[in-house]
Design a protein around this nucleic acid. Structure first.
Length: 593
RNA sequence: GGGGCCGUAGUUAAGUUGGUUAUAACGCCGGCCUGUCACGCCGGAGGGCGUGGGUUCGAGUCCCAUCGGCCCCGCCA
């Protein structure tokens, strides 16, 4: 066996040869994707990151190479040298970019053999995810994941170029840092040198980027891992990547404008799609009112209407009593309601029950009346009023939910999404951005029995609402904004508090005492006293953006080495127990498990 | 913490009301084939049904527990 690879260099990749290269002597290296042995001539599709090229072993051209080629199996690693030929008419493969040419092999070296892979790599077949994850390095050879990671790399590159061109500096911030109250559960890292002490992995570089503004860096960005020890979902991993950004001397308009440019750039470079800017904006209040959620998909209508005022005085007890008890009644109109059968309607209560709704009323609008289980309880005037409010016409279907505001909004907001999918109202390939602004500053947490920051405690209130921070915190609006794409929150940020007196006030409303604020955020409060500039920023979830761009169903499909829903890695078997020696060194004792 | 779906050859799946040696396709192995490109044709090997209990004359099919994968609620400032 010759040491081919030391003598010859790869001249091309497997995706680039065309008719214009015909006649050239070519060296290719790659994996045997498929093999077709005709007894005489043998065809192999040679694969690398860039594509497939058919290579041909003909006993009359190169007997030695042809003899060796008999042993080629799937995923063998090959180096071949030969002459590029144009394929004869009728023998081309229009489904391959390289399909008009083929490499007539003169010399073959098998660089490595391969065991038979546990699953075939050359099809779109659905392989169970646990096997794919265990052999992730093989799954990553498949076209779909290769495409996703190429897209991810392109987008990250476009983001860096854009931000760098706009005067942003990339600065790294620590992973071994301080645990912060509020927010998600932290991952802790024990300190060997300081027994009994722990670092926390950052949930985001939030405080460091603010400190960088105070340091005068003016414009900062970082594409950075963040860590949150919470349960996983189809779009949530315990470690994920943010495009983290912060700017000094800016208002909301500056931040939003630069970010719209960033989105346009990554969609252009990643998918060659032109995004229209500026993006539409909705206040948080309008978003919840009209769509039931703060991450609305605005590609379709099915808007919600509040009919609590009509319901309060109507004869249907469930509605009237809900209204009397401070709840709300909202409704959604489905045009051409025949698209939902009685059976479909019977399934809806089960679906909304996932969100805490106790039921879902429906009405089919006819000329002059309704077909509806609740029609007999209603006065004709109420029916007319509801029709009018929803602009409902004969043939339409109206769906109602009555409960607390959060249950109604969540139930109908999610139902809206489901119906849109069911009725095919969503055009694939359509990207629709919307900014959500004017979030409430605080939100009551049942679990903690106190107000918590909806965004985070460093978000600045609207200037005119600052006096309300002590008096009526529930009414305070924040200078926060989220970017929503097709019903997914892909980023969020705010103009920050840059005055220590305001920051202290917010901590106090959050019932974070002086001592606690001092011990947890003392460094920030100190820094704010040394000439902190007005500043604000945003962080984008890179994984989610890539998911949407790649139309992936799972965040795992856009991450090279993701975790399972239980947070384990089937490839490496992490996490795993620590040895007694490791624990001893860290002054740790495992109590159970 | 809770709800749901799913674990049968290497892979993807089928397996009737529990009943002889558990099916198929792809993959794999061998043979034939000089123009295929999901090559074709012929032949072959390969699992005892995630694991552990139980019910039964008899369990892939029923029951319980447990492990694992996925989806969702809670959680995720």
């Amino acid at each position: 066996m010759t040491d081919f690879i030391t003598k010859q260099r790869r001249t091309h990749n497997c995706g680039e040869l065309r008719v214009s290269n015909v006649g050239q002597t070519v060296v290719l290296m790659g994996w045997a994707h498929r093999r077709r042995d005709h007894g005489g001539v043998i065809f192999v599709d040679l694969r690398d990151r860039e594509g497939l090229t058919q290579i041909v072993f003909n006993p009359e051209v190169a007997p030695e190479a042809h003899r060796k080629a008999h042993s080629i199996r799937s995923e063998y690693v090959l180096a071949v040298r030969g002459t590029l030929k144009r394929r004869l008419e009728g023998m081309t493969n229009p489904s391959l970019p390289t399909g008009e040419v083929e490499l007539m092999v003169e010399e073959l070296e098998i660089l490595n053999e391969s065991k038979t892979p546990p699953f075939v790599l050359d099809t779109e077949a659905d392989i169970s995810e646990s096997i794919r994850l265990k052999y992730r390095y093989l799954d990553l050879r498949r076209e779909q994941l290769q495409r996703n990671l190429v897209l991810r790399s392109k987008v990250a590159e476009a983001a860096r170029n854009y931000l760098s061109g706009a005067g942003f500096l990339e600065v790294e911030t620590p992973f071994l840092t301080k645990s912060t109250p509020e927010g998600a559960r932290d991952f802790l890292v024990p300190s060997r040198i300081n027994p009994g002490m722990f670092y926390a992995l950052p949930q985001s570089p939030q405080l460091f980027k603010q400190l960088l503004m105070i340091s005068g860096f003016d414009r900062y960005y970082q594409i950075v891992k963040c860590f949150r020890d919470e349960d996983l979902r189809a779009d949530r991993q315990p470690e994920f990547t943010q495009i983290d950004i912060e700017m000094s001397f800016v208002t909301e308009e500056d931040v939003l404008g630069v970010m719209e440019g960033l989105m346009a750039e990554i969609f252009k470079k990643g998918l060659d799609i032109d995004i229209t800017t500026p993006f539409p904006r909705l206040t948080w209040e309008d978003a919840v009112e009209r769509y039931g959620r703060d991450n609305p998909d605005i590609r379709f209508d099915l808007e919600l209407r509040d009919i609590t005022d009509i319901a309060a005085g109507c004869g249907f007890k469930v509605f009237a009593e809900t209204a009397a008890a401070g709840g709300i009644v909202k409704a959604m109109k489905v045009e051409n309601g025949k698209r939902l059968s009685r059976k479909d309607l019977d399934e809806l209560p089960g679906y909304v029950s996932e969100f805490g709704a106790k039921g879902l009323a429906w009405a089919r609008v006819n000329e002059g009346d309704w077909t509806s289980p609740i029609y007999k309880f209603l006065d004709p005037r109420d029916v007319t009023a509801i029709n009018k409010k929803l602009e409902a016409n004969p043939g339409d279907l109206i769906l109602f939910a009555a409960d607390t505001p959060s249950v109604v909004n969540e139930a109908l907001g999610n139902l809206r999404m489901r119906l849109a999918q069911r009725l095919g109202l969503i055009e694939p390939g359509n990207y629709s951005f919307v900014w959500i602004t004017d979030f409430p500053m605080f939100e009551y947490s049942e679990a903690e029995g106190r107000l918590v920051a909806l965004h985070h405690p460093f978000t600045s209130p609207l200037p005119e609402d600052i006096p309300l921070v002590d008096k009526d915190p529930a009414k305070v609006r924040a200078r926060a904004y989220d970017l929503v794409l097709n019903g997914s929150e892909i980023g969020g940020g705010s103009i920050r508090i840059h005055r220590s007196d305001v920051q202290k006030k917010v901590f106090s409303t959050l019932k974070i005492g002086d001592d606690e604020a001092r011990s947890k955020f003392g460094f920030l409060l100190d820094a704010l006293e040394y000439g902190a500039p007005p500043h604000g920023g945003i962080a984008f979830g890179l994984d989610r953006i890539i998911m949407l761009m790649a139309r992936a169903e799972s965040i795992r499909d856009v991450i090279a080495f993701p975790k399972t829903q239980k947070g384990t890695c089937l490839l490496t078997d992490a996490p795993s127990p620590a040895t007694p020696e490791q624990l001893m060194e860290l002054s740790l004792k495992v109590v159970k498990g």
